[in-house]
Simulated scan of single mutants.
Amino acid sequence: MGRDGLTRDFVVGVVAEGIGKGIPMVAMPCVNAAYAQHPQFERSVAELRRMRVRVLYGDDGFVPNPPGQGKPQEYPWHLFLGAVEEIVAAR
């Protein structure tokens, strides 16, 4: 735990609070394929989904690149923004 609460990172704290308040969340991890191989990564994605966070990862979202071969111009922003638009339209 951080000195000032559940986490030391502001963004993580805001997301944690939003989940607790039932605010719809969308996340799209941007990691390389080596990072995604760690078992904790898949557990974290599964836990976020269990908490009803819409995680755009894999076939329906971000697909990791090999390490060192990032392609920022190909990041699928349209998928993320489309998911946010769906949430807004449903409210």
Rank of each mutant, 00 (worst) to 15 (best):
87 I>E: 11
91 R>K: 14
28 M>V: 00
17 E>V: 09
64 P>A: 05
41 F>T: 00
26 V>W: 01
31 V>L: 05
18 G>Y: 01
40 Q>C: 11
26 V>C: 04
25 M>P: 00
14 V>D: 05
56 L>H: 07
32 N>H: 12
37 Q>C: 08
75 Y>F: 15
83 A>C: 08
80 F>T: 10
58 G>S: 04
41 F>S: 02
7 T>H: 15
77 W>E: 07
60 D>R: 12
51 M>D: 13
38 H>T: 07
51 M>V: 03
28 M>H: 04
2 G>Q: 08
23 I>V: 15
63 V>M: 14
18 G>Q: 01
14 V>I: 10
17 E>D: 09
65 N>L: 11
46 A>H: 10
74 E>Y: 11
49 R>P: 04
84 V>I: 13
77 W>A: 06
82 G>F: 05
3 R>V: 12
89 A>S: 15
26 V>G: 01
4 D>C: 07
90 A>N: 10
24 P>C: 04
9 D>R: 08
89 A>M: 10
1 M>T: 15
14 V>Q: 08
5 G>Y: 03
8 R>T: 09
82 G>I: 02
31 V>P: 01
23 I>W: 07
19 I>H: 02
58 G>A: 06
53 V>S: 01
73 Q>H: 14
12 V>G: 07
9 D>F: 15
85 E>K: 15
2 G>Y: 06
38 H>N: 12
39 P>Q: 03
73 Q>T: 08
79 L>V: 03
56 L>A: 09
15 V>A: 08
50 R>W: 04
50 R>K: 05
38 H>R: 07
33 A>H: 06
46 A>D: 14
14 V>W: 04
21 K>M: 12
86 E>I: 10
81 L>V: 12
87 I>Q: 09
52 R>T: 11
90 A>T: 10
38 H>A: 06
42 E>W: 01
35 Y>G: 00
13 G>D: 00
39 P>D: 05
61 G>R: 03
86 E>S: 11
37 Q>E: 13
5 G>T: 04
69 Q>E: 14
83 A>W: 03
18 G>R: 13
69 Q>Y: 08
57 Y>P: 13
75 Y>G: 00
57 Y>G: 06
30 C>Q: 02
35 Y>P: 00
54 R>S: 05
71 K>G: 11
69 Q>M: 12
37 Q>F: 06
43 R>F: 06
30 C>P: 00
88 V>F: 09
90 A>P: 10
26 V>P: 05
21 K>E: 13
50 R>P: 07
21 K>Q: 15
